[in-house]
Design a protein around this nucleic acid. Structure first.
Lengths: 152, 152
DNA sequence: TATTGTTATACTCTATAACTATA
DNA sequence: TATAGTTATAGAGTATAACAATA
């Protein structure tokens, strides 16, 4: 993942294509994520015996959601969700419910057990990695504010 | 992925567990990655007909590497690499070579075609997302510097 | 004996197409 | 006719265990 651009900005600054700074920031962002944060996340999910789509599905179930909405959030076909929800359901973490308005729709909801697991997962997910904890308070604040602006 | 902590810092500041800023930064970092950057990456990989492990494997092949090293970088079992490399090899993107020092070891190397695809992939991966391009130059610079410090 | 990579097996994810029950 | 979810099928990722070749 060594995609750091070493290109320098042009002599006449402020032009339309002067994206050298953004390229450097993006390269470092990717390196930080893939080399440090991603392995940590995978380990956490494994600890809860969840693979990525299962983890993502639980993460979406703040409230009951239709199968189709889960599919679009997971960027996969409707048919995949059937199996994913089947397996979470076999573990007693989620259940299917009828939808009041449309009898074709099934809502997926957390069970009590699923809610417990999801809470513990949220608690653990919210703990910042050492790389962020070791930054100065000023850096932490600036990072928070900049990412907030990036999110619009 | 709504894991933003709303906890405020304690009255007597500077204590050991005062990590509220880091928690906020981390929550926003995760939201930015999962809701904006990850879908973009998946789309790019799909454009090249690569799934995540294949994309990761090509990304590691700056130079020829033993199967076992690929396995440890991908955090999967040795046996999985056999199939992943088989399929990349069937597409003519990589090849197995003997290792000079140890006849048990096989080195995986990019073919010419693999090198071309990998270069194009790197070029596309290096293009910053709009969320970063639209930040002010000051924010881009600060982000680059802070992430650089986080990486140590 | 230990290690590298493969094979065999089983389970899960993923996409496509055909099907059902609703709308 | 169109839509939501399922089933059937096939290809790919993943883990475990057993294995061959080599160290």
């Amino acid at each position: 993942m060594n995609v750091v651009s070493s290109k320098k900005s042009p002599k006449r600054g402020g032009t339309k294509r002067d994206d050298a700074l953004a390229r450097e920031a993006w390269a470092l962002f990717q390196e930080l994520f893939f080399s440090r944060f991603r392995p940590r996340m995978l380990a956490l999910w494994r600890e809860f015996d969840l693979n990525p789509p299962q983890q993502m599905t639980l993460g979406l179930l703040d409230e009951p959601r239709p199968m189709g909405e889960l599919a679009s959030q997971l960027q996969c076909d409707n048919s995949n969700i059937t199996g994913i929800v089947d397996r979470l359901s076999d573990r007693g973490l989620v259940e299917r419910r009828p939808s009041p308005g449309d009898r074709r729709v099934k809502l997926v909801a957390l069970t009590d057990e699923g809610r417990e697991l999801r809470s513990e997962l949220d608690r653990r997910r919210a703990i910042p990695p050492d790389e962020l904890l070791e930054l100065s308070a000023a850096d932490q604040r600036a990072l928070r504010d900049i990412i907030g602006r990036a999110l619009g």
